[in-house]
Design a protein around this nucleic acid. Structure first.
Length: 950
RNA sequence: GCGGAUAUGGCGUAAUUGGUAGCCGCGUUAGACUUAGGAUCUAAUGGUGCAAGCCGUGGGGGUUCGAGUCCCCCUAUCCGCACCA
């Protein structure tokens, strides 16, 4: 019988379903192993071949671990809330719940056909109230916690209140706690809560009608849809993720991720060490700048009231400060601007604030700014230095104010050049004063941290590193500054003015937010009649009629009942996409728990994800948020590991491989084959559907049927074939290069698809999808099937065992290091070698089937069962390799002369160098290369090489 | 600009520790079987040369008995970040 995947595959998929083969228990004495895929957003387009790549890799590993005796948790679910379903709803009026449901059904069907070992009993969907109950619950917990810097962990807000009550902690800058009204206290606490409401500049996307997080905006455009994004001040929920910045950096040390991904995260978090220093304002506004001013005498005195704080990573360059710059949003501008400069400054600030993010980013190189008329005093030199305003200083970073050192910072340099401000060198690689050049003649600043301080008072002559420390010590001593660490990571904006997301369990009393009681969760997403914002500009939830909170009766009621006494308005924003995906890995551990997020027993058993597989594009989004979420739950004593994902493998992006036909420029019905001379000059390339092209050969009949305009196309062929051109592009419908896995499964079977996706190359590597090699893998499975059918019921012979054990060793090694492409090649070699023997024993085939089971589970099950087994191959035992089987009597030595291999010699094992050399000397061919000379030196590496140096 | 990665036949790739470069597959060529082949099987296939041989892992240098692999410099491509002081 032929290899009939059409029969085998559905048969085993049914068997697995009926026997719950992949159901996984939390109660086992086996060692545990948790393999997780990043769950998909179920889009309307369905899966393309890029999606399963990572799933197949993780499935192989999960199945392998199971065969090695682990209790494996390998779940799957859906990240089901999100923008596309809602955009679709706005366009068509279809409820997102319906389209989402439909898309999920389609995904499931496609996934099932590929034969994954997911435990579907544990499926989660982020849009399911039974699931988002715990998303909301976590939000309430975040609201009720703050980050305690002393304990370096999140603590209940009651702990903070207690300290304020008993006076062990004082309020900062405000009234004493005791004198505050209840509302003032709530407002004060809002500055501490890990989920907080604040007026903050946000990324507002008018087209999508919502606010976006930083990672959802690239180059001033929304990631979803590519619409322009503006800066806007809005009252929004945010998560105080910045409180965890240091721990998020530190945690990277503990995890087994690629260096590049760790770098991406470190970059995004952006830790930088430096100093913050207070610069006082110069009182005498009329004085002129720089030299000859008496040193500032404020040592040890309190900071003058009109002073402002700057952050610098280069405290060593403080003697080179020639101007200061404030961001346009800086609160001091108003106060310090001189009457003469006021009009100009106001105009500039207004202009800068109204600029869209996109304009600003597009014109980064353009230098703009305005002088305030005010001066600051350099606390170390006493010099007066002008204060400017420019948008190159960002409000969201550091203190929004800088000391400008144009000689040693390229941005300050550009600014100084543009406005003709002085430039003073204070760092030099060669500190000899005679070798210094005039900075006014420089082409660019010297930003390097390698060198010595010059022209710098008490630090002159010090190495940059020492000078930094010396200046920090000095300003600390003076009481005007300190060593400071700054992070680029901003708090995550958590509100979205959208419908299709988790509702906030929040209602407003006196304009202040209150959390719903935990027992009242989940707060279910209400029905609305329109998915667009309301006419008054409220988010879509403004359309919901039954959307008010009855505090007394603890239930959601009609909003007509709002009286601000017992019934209050509910929050109208919803949570962002990353809310539901931030803790889903924990929920899989105990997905049916109605009482808690997950039980302590479950989390104590599974701990965290051992292996996480997904795309690197989540490096600055999901993977940061999830780590934050996990650390918070860890602080609460719920999660038991600081880091959620121990090992992470990024599968490479699958690009499209487009095909082209070449239409004649002079004859619209004539298509010229690619390699016919003159084709390039005389034709226009046109994308052609890759599904009617095989190995770059066009199926002419299908092409004629493809589109009416090509119905009577004519062709100039080469060797009777039409050869198409190709190019690597993004996989997209418009380029007709989308490969759907179902088509391939229908044609070759799931096992072939699985093997082929792995055979394509290393999992982590980005690669274009190319179906040209799939035949080879298909042939291999047929060969394996034939080998199985011809196998006999007899003991395995030595040559068979040798091949088998070589394969066991190689496959085991390969899987352990995620080298699945070489595994496939190893299987091919094995089957080729076994096929060359006279016969093969059933026992060898059986062992080989187990080795192949993670990769090609259907055919493996079939073979295993036909060999007489009545249980699933999933419960078989992974073969152990026996080194004794691989021991050889001889080794074929490559013999090289002066490092160039010239011949090989088969020599017995354990031969000595002397014997080896003697054998070489005796060899005829070797004598030719010796050419009568005496070897100067002989390198003999047992079982490796012999090298003769002449 | 900063950071990360990659570069090997016509193509996808392999070489795990510095030890015979090109395994495995695609494609191509020739042949066998066949009414037929998008089936199967056999053989060949880095370049060059009649051959011995010579050349060959993006380019240039170096370390070494020996380098795709280690070190230095350069180039190209891809990815991430980008006025973050």
């Amino acid at each position: 019988m032929d290899y009939n995947f059409n029969e085998i595959e559905p048969k085993w998929q049914n068997y697995w379903r009926e026997h719950h083969t992949y159901r996984c228990s939390n109660d086992s004495n086996k060692p545990h192993y948790y393999v997780l895929d990043m769950f998909p957003y179920p889009s309307g387009a369905g899966l393309h071949v890029g999606h399963p790549l990572g799933y197949i890799a993780s499935d192989i590993f999960a199945r392998y671990k199971r065969l090695r005796g682990f209790n494996v948790l390998h779940p799957m679910g859906y990240d089901a809330y999100g923008l596309p379903a809602e955009q679709y709803a706005i366009q068509t009026g279809q409820h997102p719940a319906i389209t989402t449901e439909r898309n999920i059904a389609r995904y499931r069907e496609q996934l099932d056909k590929i034969g994954f070992s997911f435990d579907w009993d544990r499926e989660v969907r982020t849009c399911d109230p039974f699931y988002y109950h715990w998303t909301q619950w976590t939000f309430v917990q975040l609201f009720n916690h703050y980050y305690d810097k002393e304990l370096d962990k999140a603590m209940p807000i009651s702990h903070l209140v207690e300290q304020l009550e008993n006076g062990s902690l004082e309020t900062q800058g405000d009234k004493p706690w005791k004198e505050m009204t209840e509302e003032e206290r709530q407002d004060y606490l809002m500055n501490y809560r890990l989920a907080y409401l604040a007026d903050i500049p946000v990324n507002w996307c008018p087209e999508l009608g919502t606010v976006l997080a930083n990672d959802e905006v690239v180059g001033g455009l929304s990631v979803r849809g590519g619409y322009p994004v503006e800066r806007k001040l809005m009252r929004q929920w945010s998560l105080r993720i910045s409180a965890y910045a240091q721990r998020l950096v530190d945690g990277l040390e503990e995890v087994d991720w690629t260096d590049s991904l760790k770098e991406i995260q470190r970059n995004w978090i952006g830790r930088s060490e430096g100093a913050s220093v207070w610069f006082p304002l110069a009182v005498d506004q009329k004085a002129n700048l720089l030299p000859g001013v008496q040193a500032y005498q404020g040592q040890g005195e309190p900071i003058p009231e009109s002073a402002f704080e700057i952050f610098t990573t280069r405290p060593d360059t403080i003697f080179g400060v020639t101007f200061m710059v404030l961001c346009p949003e800086h609160e001091m501008i108003e106060q310090i601007t001189t009457p003469e400069q006021r009009a100009e400054v106001e105009a500039y600030v207004t202009w800068a604030k109204n600029r869209s993010e996109r304009e600003r980013q597009a014109e980064v190189k353009k230098v703009t700014g305005v002088f305030t008329g005010a001066f600051a005093v350099n606390p170390l030199t006493g010099e007066k230095i002008p204060i400017w305003v420019s948008e190159y200083v960002l409000a969201g970073y550091g203190t929004g104010a800088i000391m400008a050192v144009p000689a040693h910072d390229s941005r300050d340099f550009a600014f100084a050049r543009h406005f003709h401000l002085p430039i003073r060198q204070v760092v030099a690689a060669d500190p000899n004063p005679e070798h210094l050049t005039d900075p006014n003649t420089w082409e660019e600043s010297i930003d390097s941290k390698i060198g010595y301080s010059v022209n710098s008072g008490f630090i002159t002559g010090m190495k940059v590193k020492d000078a930094m420390k010396a200046v920090i010590n000095k300003v600390e001593e003076m009481g005007i500054g300190s060593r400071t660490v700054n992070f680029r990571l901003r708090d995550a904006i958590f509100s979205r003015q959208r419908y299709w997301g988790e509702p906030f369990p929040v209602y407003y009393k006196n304009n202040r937010p209150y959390m719903l009681p935990l027992e009242c969760l989940p707060l279910e997403l209400p029905e609305v009649k329109d998915f667009k914002p309301t006419s008054t500009g409220e988010p879509p939830l403004g359309h919901a009629q039954v959307w008010a909170w009855d505090e007394k009766n603890r239930k959601v009621v009609d909003k007509n009942l709002i009286d601000h006494v017992n019934v209050f308005p509910l929050e109208l924003s919803t949570m962002p996409g990353f809310a539901g995906s931030s803790g889903y890995y924990l929920r899989y551990m105990d997905p049916h728990n109605g009482q808690a997020y997950f039980s302590p027993e479950a989390v104590n058993y599974w701990q965290n994800v051992d292996l996480y597989v997904g795309g690197a594009e989540h490096g600055t989004g999901h993977l940061i948020y999830a780590r934050f979420w996990n650390k918070f739950l860890f602080d609460m004593g719920l999660a038991v590991k600081q880091e959620p994902f121990q090992k992470l493998v990024n599968q490479g992006m699958i690009q499209g491989r487009s095909n082209f036909v070449y239409r004649s420029k002079t004859d619209n019905n004539l298509f010229i084959s690619k390699n016919i001379p003159g084709c390039a000059e005389n034709t226009v390339p046109i994308h052609v559907d890759i599904n009617i092209v095989n190995n770059d050969i066009l199926d002419i009949e299908k092409f004629r049927q493809w589109r009416p305009e090509f119905a009577d196309a004519r062709f100039e062929l080469e060797d009777g074939k039409y050869v198409c051109g190709w190019e690597v592009e993004k996989m997209s419908k418009s380029m007709f290069n989308v490969q759907n896995p179902d088509d391939l499964v229908a044609r070759y079977g799931a096992d072939t698809l699985r093997l082929y996706e792995m055979f394509l190359g290393p999992v982590e590597q980005a690669k274009p999808w190319d179906t040209n090699g799939i035949e080879g893998v298909f042939r291999f499975l047929k060969k394996f099937w034939k080998l199985f059918e011809s196998s006999i019921d007899a003991p395995a012979t030595k040559p068979q065992l040798k091949i088998l054990h070589q394969t066991i060793k190689k496959i085991t090694d390969d899987i352990e290091r995620f080298s699945f492409n070489t595994s496939v090649s190893t299987f091919m070699i094995c089957v080729n070698d076994l096929s060359a023997l006279d016969s093969v024993s059933h026992t060898v085939i059986e062992q080989l089937a187990i080795l192949m089971a993670p990769f090609a589970p259907h055919i493996a099950e079939e073979v295993y069962s036909q060999l007489g087994h009545t249980t699933s191959i999933c419960d078989a035992q992974w073969p152990e390799y026996d080194p004794a089987m691989l021991v050889q009597d001889t080794f074929t030595y490559p013999v090289s002369f002066n490092g160039k291999t010239r011949l090989t010699l088969e020599l017995p094992n354990g031969i000595s160098q002397q014997e080896a050399v003697a054998a070489v000397m005796a060899d005829k061919l070797a004598q030719k290369w010796l050419d009568g000379k005496e070897p100067k030196r002989v390198v003999f590496v047992p079982n490796k090489i012999i090298n003769i140096v002449l």
